[in-house]
């Protein structure tokens, strides 16, 4: 690993718990490169996670870090941001963590447009518990709790974030780490709720059960299902089946929550509700 990002790691925590070939390390590298190129101080960064393989990221990075309860990274992060708005607050979540048990928090963090970045590592499965299907497992794929094929529709977190009120929304994958890093950096710098979903590989809990035995096969598959947004728009509905658009879906500047709250304080201090 190159030096510029090693300085952000807690070396005593290594080796890490992830399986060989897991995509989470790629996302971690992308996040650290983005932080390095922005030049943030370690002391001003708070990284908050929930529960799952991806949530273990917070243990390995030398910031103010928190590994909270399943699905709840965003409300914890909200409390931190509001108590000290000068902090740079980042959450890292998995697909089950963010889209299932934490789905309501995700919607409302976006609705408030609070200045927090949500990095969602979407490996389309509950990895840590052994491969149960998640809300982002593609229809038809196999999970340990969907042994005959998943019949659930999987939903689109980026569309959800756009309609719920976020400021920046993008999707990339571990196959295109340069693009992922670029999106993550933009998300970190956005004043408002920013979302980057990164399609990642879980060769152990998703790959093996879905006949992609090696990390390389999984990456090939990710490459085959991800389509740049401009190409995606030209596809027929049949061609879109089983594929995911990548790119930036939203990049706007709208009033941010902790800033708006300052105005509430000023109004209260002036003694009137209507000033």
């Amino acid at each position: 690993m190159n030096n510029e990002i090693v300085q952000y790691l807690r070396k005593e925590m290594f080796p890490n718990i992830w399986c060989p070939g897991c995509g989470i390390g790629i996302v971690l590298g992308a996040m650290l490169r983005a932080i390095h190129s922005i030049g943030w101080e370690k002391d001003e960064i708070v990284m908050v996670s929930g529960i799952g393989c991806s949530s273990r990221i917070t243990g390995y990075v030398d910031f103010n870090t928190m590994n909270t309860t399943h699905g709840r990274a965003l409300p914890y992060a909200t409390g931190i941001k509001m108590a000290n708005p000068s902090l740079k607050v980042i959450t890292v979540m998995g697909d089950g963590d963010c889209a299932a048990i934490g789905g309501n928090h995700f919607i409302h963090a976006a609705r408030r447009n609070i200045d927090i970045t949500a990095i969602i590592i979407n490996n389309m499965i509950y990895g840590m518990t052994g491969g149960q299907y998640s809300p982002l497992t593609p229809t038809g794929k196999i999970g340990t709790t969907a042994p005959y094929g998943n019949i659930d529709q999987c939903f689109d977190l980026t569309s959800l974030a756009v309609s719920a009120g976020a400021s920046y929304v993008a999707r990339s994958s571990v196959f295109d780490v340069i693009q992922a890093t670029r999106f993550i950096k933009k998300a970190f710098l956005k004043k408002g709720f920013s979302v980057v979903e990164i399609i990642s590989d879980c060769p152990i809990s998703f790959g093996r059960i879905n006949r992609m035995r090696t990390p390389a096969e999984m990456l090939e598959w990710i490459k085959s299902i991800t389509v740049p947004k401009n190409k995606w728009e030209k596809l027929t509905p049949e061609e879109k089946e089983g594929k995911l658009p990548t790119g930036e879906f939203l990049d706007i500047n709208i009033p941010e929550y902790s800033k708006n709250y300052q105005e509430v304080c000023i109004r209260a201090q002036q003694g009137g509700k209507d000033k």
């Binding site: 708070v46 908050v48 928190m66 909270t68 309860t69 709840r72 965003l74 409300p75 914890y76 992060a77 909200t78 409390g79 931190i80 941001k81 509001m82 108590a83 000290n84 902090l87 309501n104 928090h105 919607i107 409302h108 709250y261 509430v264 304080c265 109004r267 209260a268 201090q269 003694g271």
Partner: peptide
């Protein structure tokens, strides 16, 4: 708000508890 403190109505009870703990870690009595 008049004291420069933060009031938040959260999306649910779980979030209220989580935000309270987060704020405390960031230094507020919560």
């Amino acid at each position: 708000p008049a004291l420069g403190g933060v009031f938040m109505q959260m999306e649910d009870e779980i979030a209220s508890m989580a935000a309270t703990i987060g704020a405390s870690l960031a230094g507020a009595k919560a």
